[in-house]
Simulated assay, not measured.
Amino acid sequence: MSQIGIGIAGTGWVAGEHIKSYQKHNDAKVVALWNRTRATAERKAQEFGLTDVKIYDTYEAMIADSAVQAVSLCTPPNAHPRETILAAQAGKHILIEKSVANDPKSLGEMVRAVEKAEVKTVVGFVLHWNLQFMWIKRMMEQQAIGKVFYAEVDYWHNIGPQYVQFHWNRRKEIAESVLLSAGCHAIDALRYFVGQEITEVSAYSNLRNDVYEYDTNLVGIMKFADGAIGKTSASFDCQCPYLFNIDLLGDKGTIRDNKIWAQEYFAGQTDWVQVPTVRPDSGDVAHHPFDGEIAHFMECIQTGNESHINLADAAKTHAVCYAMDRSARENRPVTIAEIYAEAGIG
């Protein structure tokens, strides 16, 4: 395939990072923009020197353009199901910012549309290209801490009016929950590092900041298919800088963020080994490793290979989020199988 034409849907904050990364790759060219407000798309084109880009008044018109082979969905989360299904039906490859869907039924419809169209997808769990994530995954693959029996990942981020997305992020009809809005990064990390699927969860939540239309703090516990257990929490009310806590306890050692204790792996170890690296410690999208994500998306399109974070995989993370939200709401344990049955996926 020659240079891949990219259409950007939604030209807000995160769209700028997508455009920057596409501009670094010779095999990609941003050829089209669409935003609900045309003037916003025009300003984005000017900001990034997109002099020959087409600006569309409707999403449908953009994906009908034969010059667009792939789209980045940078719109609010509640728009993603419809946009994904339409793009798949138009034969476009799709990079979907999270969350991909706010309910199981919509998720299932998306998965089936993508499978039928046989298009490639990548979901925006961009931290897979964070250097600390990459180091931890390498340690897990090399069995440095052995088999994980307990895992804990937290997403703590005070998202208030200082953030661009706050005006819509606080609304339930758009963002749905603290997990689906952002805490899903922690669920994705748990699945990624443990290497097992979550089977059952229990959770509690509360609301501290009533500007939000949903509970802004949640804590949950989980069981994995192999018997491992775990915990996660997500908070928009934390009174501290952004934190993404990672604790992995294995039968040969322990990882705490960028520190590791593994006496078999590090012969003669007498203290924690601390790895100087780039940590996932900022909510600013400019800090996120979009270059790696975009390069991966391009590679999947060119080679025909499926992504390890395609829509089918991300559906498993979202199912856990739905289950935790339901557990907190209904005060009972919820199995992931219950969510899969509603979504019509397995």
Rank of each mutant, 00 (worst) to 15 (best):
Asp237Ser: 15
Ala9Asp: 14
Gln263Val: 05
Arg38Ser: 12
His25Asn: 12
Met110Pro: 00
Gly292Glu: 05
Val285Ala: 00
Gln165Phe: 13
Gly230Arg: 00
Lys120Trp: 03
Trp261Cys: 02
Ser72Arg: 07
Asp52Arg: 03
Ala314Trp: 00
Lys98Thr: 06
Ile174Cys: 08
Val334Leu: 04
Leu95Tyr: 11
Gln162Ile: 06
Glu141Phe: 05
Ala262His: 09
Asp215Trp: 01
Ala61Gln: 12
Gln302Glu: 11
Asp291Leu: 05
His18Asp: 12
Arg256Trp: 12
Val211Thr: 15
Glu299Trp: 12
Leu190Phe: 12
Val114Ile: 06
Ala67Ser: 08
Asp154Phe: 09
Lys223Ile: 01
Asp103His: 00
Arg191Asn: 00
Tyr155Ala: 07
Ile336Ser: 08
Val14Ala: 05
Ser327Leu: 02
Tyr155Arg: 08
Pro276Val: 11
Asp237Thr: 15
Tyr22Met: 15
Tyr163Ala: 06
Asn35Ile: 07
Glu330Ser: 03
Leu73Glu: 07
Pro161Trp: 04
Val122Pro: 13
Ser2Ala: 09
Gly5Cys: 11
Lys24Trp: 11
Gly230Ala: 07
Trp129Met: 05
Ala337Asn: 14
Arg171Gln: 14
Leu190Cys: 03
Val148Cys: 14
Glu213Trp: 03
Arg329Ser: 02
Gln263Trp: 07
Ser66Leu: 10
Gln196Tyr: 04
Asn245Lys: 08
Asp188Arg: 11
Ala312Gln: 05
Leu179Glu: 02
Met1Gln: 09
Thr303Glu: 07
Asn209Ala: 10
Asn331Gln: 15
Gly195His: 14
Thr58Trp: 14
Pro280Gln: 05
Gly304Cys: 10
Ala90Pro: 09
Gln23Val: 10
Tyr163Met: 03
Ala286Tyr: 02
Ala203Cys: 00
Leu190Lys: 05
Arg112Gln: 11
Ser202His: 08
Cys321Asn: 08
Tyr214Cys: 07
Ile246Cys: 08
Ala295Ser: 15
Gln69Tyr: 06
Ile8Trp: 13
Ile294Asn: 14
Ser66Lys: 14
Asp188Leu: 03
Glu47Gln: 13
Glu152Lys: 14
Tyr150Thr: 12
Gly49Pro: 01
Asn331Val: 13
Lys24Tyr: 07
Phe236Tyr: 15
Val194Leu: 06
Tyr204Val: 15
Ala70His: 15
Ala70Val: 08
Asn258Cys: 05
Glu152Val: 11
Ala312His: 02
His318Tyr: 01
Glu60Trp: 01
Thr303Ala: 00
Pro280Leu: 03
Glu173Arg: 13
Lys20Gly: 11
Ala70Leu: 06
Leu33Cys: 06
Tyr59Ile: 09
Asn78Arg: 08
Thr75Cys: 13
Asn206Lys: 02
Ser21Cys: 07
Ala117Leu: 01
Ser21Lys: 13
Asp52Ala: 11
Lys223Phe: 08
Thr40Cys: 00
Arg82Asn: 04
Asp215Cys: 04
Tyr163Lys: 13
Gly108Pro: 03
Lys98Cys: 08
Thr232Ala: 02
